[in-house]
Design a protein around this nucleic acid. Structure first.
Lengths: 188, 188
DNA sequence: CTACCATGTTTAATAAATTAAACAACCCCT
DNA sequence: AGGGGTTGTTTAATTTATTAAACATGGTAG
């Protein structure tokens, strides 16, 4: 957990086009404080940091959520690629199957049970919400396009991607398609 | 941005079954420090807070991403109670159905596609991970017990609850049960 | 009931963050 | 060139957090 508070603050401040003094005034601290923090020569109290971030403005959660999470490398998962977790669950009785999509270190997720009529199509290409989404196909087939990758997914197949990448769902079959998905943070 | 650091820390510490002294030792600070922070009588420096959280362990981002969501009041959702979102999605073409489980303000979620053989049963009653979980039944029937509430869920029905509440899944039918769930933060 | 061990709280001494003000460097303008 | 304005940095004084140790409470065994 080596979080570089100083560099992070400087980065954010400059991204907002603020000088140390300008930010200091809006935040109600002195410019010296900002300087020392950015050099990591003092570790601000959270109350100070909160004041500083109020001048941005930005929440503490946003500040520390700068683990610019690299987009997961694997996007499409075939049925057999789902990770079975039942074996690692303690206290289970009988035959239980828990199968996980990818190696998620998820964020806020919205669970969706989606159905697509034959020929149905979502033209959604851009998301302002920085979010991730994933899902599992239950019935039928769906053509999923994510960036420059395209895949036809059938029952048991799954997907997981950063939804800032343009994407699209199309039911190219003649059967209704049913899938269950999750999105983080919630799409609506 | 009124983040209650003290209350938050106390909450987390107790959820992990640690005393102030136990946490202090693991973190490399004194018990008095923990006490004062929890009473909001001192605002820790982020370096101190980082040390404390390392004893949990927990990242700063996770710590501040605690918009203490009150446990959702509704636990069981009948098929018809799922919230249809397709109408609010812009740019869709054709017949698309997006149905959401509850009014989630989710956190880190783990997506699971679960199957239960007839008679299968999870005896899991306690979770140390503060987490939420939810899911949708795809096939078969499952008896879900959450705290003092019990419900038999069939295809299309769903659930959503705070998994710190003792809970249990039982397939009481003669058919295999299949459901898709999500858990936040990841269970394993 | 008493002794003991764990818990959280408080207090004076110490260490560290924050301030206020001065310093140095840079750019722009006349 | 030389002001006037800005930038970020530094330094001594002050405020605040942190420590170490004592205090108070609660439960439990003997």
């Amino acid at each position: 957990m080596d979080f570089d508070v100083g560099t992070r603050l400087k980065q954010i401040r400059e991204q907002h086009g603020l000088s140390q003094r300008a930010l200091a005034q809006k935040a109600g601290v002195t410019n010296g404080t900002i300087s020392l923090i950015e050099q990591n020569r003092s570790s601000p109290s959270v109350s100070s940091l909160r004041k500083v971030l109020q001048g941005i403005p930005m929440t503490l959660a946003e500040f520390f959520s700068s683990d610019d999470l690299p987009p997961p490398e694997q996007i499409f998962f075939k049925n057999s690629e789902l990770v079975e977790l039942a074996g690692e669950l303690k206290g289970t009785v009988g035959k239980v199957s828990f199968r996980q999509v990818g190696d998620l270190r998820g964020r806020n997720l919205q669970i969706l049970h989606e159905r697509y009529a034959p020929g149905a199509d979502t033209g959604r290409t851009m998301l302002q919400h920085e979010s991730e989404e994933g899902g599992i196909v239950v019935r039928g087939q769906i053509e999923l396009t994510v960036g420059d990758r395209k895949e036809l997914l059938g029952p048991g197949d799954a997907y997981f991607f950063d939804s800032r990448i343009p994407h699209r769902f199309r039911n190219v079959g003649e059967e209704e398609c049913e899938l269950i998905s999750a999105c983080t943070p919630p799409y609506l």
